[in-house]
Design a protein around this nucleic acid. Structure first.
Length: 269
DNA sequence: GATCTATGTAGAT
DNA sequence: TCTACCTAGATCG
């Protein structure tokens, strides 16, 4: 589900499956009907992601911008595509594959200027080659805002969601409420490549795993974790359970309207 | 079957 | 800081 790694995985998949082919683009639900008509029958030139945003660039110059939000989801299969059931915002069909999109926050055709504006307001994305971690550091270093809020701010770093935030802070022993400007630059220079590694692993596996080998269930004898995001994590949604490193019960609290999780021992205030 | 909850964001207050 | 958006799986009764 949708943190940055999911969108990059989708972009990669759509690129492989559809790029270079004409696509039948429809909106069975109707809410994207006028947009779909602008690209229906066109060849997909490229699919790419920046943070949690997905872009389908068609050869006629139109771009479909998709943001899954909290609920959005793609499903796909091989033809024939089944009769539409429920609220399908967009359906793509090629000669070899079909894909349905449900429940996105955004699914719209944008002009090149509008696309550029989205890229411009997004911060560096650890999964993109053009990412510059110094741009994020510049904002973090002068901000009184908590590091937890800064990491979720897509104009600071694009692609981090609640799970990567909680796990990255844990892995570097950072309390969520530490102000950005109190963060040590050397710590940030360790956090960024670590985040990039975690997210690349997420793209490969299609799930978020953040636990080092020595703390995995196979190494420690504890029961494997089964959560709906599917991965092995240190603190995300583990409130009250023992920290995998020190055994202290994990804290869980809503901060700035989002659930936060941390180990009070490994991540001192 | 009803209710709750979530990995996100924009806009109003 | 709050609400709306609007989906599906988990949980409740």
């Amino acid at each position: 589900m949708p943190e940055g790694h999911t969108l990059h995985r989708l972009a990669r998949s759509h690129q492989r499956t559809y790029a270079g082919q004409p696509l039948a683009v429809t909106s069975p639900q109707g809410r994207f009907a006028s947009g779909a008509s602008l690209v229906d029958g066109q060849v997909l030139a490229k699919a790419e992601a920046h943070g949690k945003h997905l872009f389908h660039n068609y050869v006629n110059g139109h771009t479909v911008h998709i943001h899954l939000g909290l609920y959005g989801k793609f499903t796909d299969g091989t033809p024939p595509a089944p009769a539409p059931v429920g609220q399908i915002r967009m359906r793509l069909v090629s000669s070899t594959q079909w894909t349905d999109l449900r429940g996105p926050t955004a699914c719209e055709v944008l002009t090149p200027d509008e696309v550029a504006a989205i890229h411009a307001r997004l911060g560096p994305d650890p999964l993109r080659r053009d990412a510059d971690p110094d741009k994020a550091w510049t904002k973090i270093a002068k901000s009184r805002t908590s590091i937890a809020v800064l990491l979720m701010d897509q104009s600071v770093v694009a692609g981090i969601g609640n799970i990567y935030r909680a796990e990255l802070l844990f892995r570097h022993g950072i309390h969520p409420l530490i102000p950005g400007r109190s963060l040590d630059h050397t710590v940030w220079k360790e956090m960024w490549p670590d985040l990039a590694t975690l997210m690349r692993l997420g793209v490969r596996r299609g799930r978020i795993d953040t636990v080092r080998d020595e703390h995995l269930p196979e190494a420690t004898g504890r029961a494997p974790r089964q959560d709906r995001h599917g991965g092995e994590v240190y603190v995300y949604r583990r409130t009250g359970q023992p920290c995998l490193v020190c055994g202290t019960p994990v804290m869980g609290e809503v901060l700035a309207a989002r659930n936060n999780y941390w180990c009070p021992t490994c991540q001192p205030a």
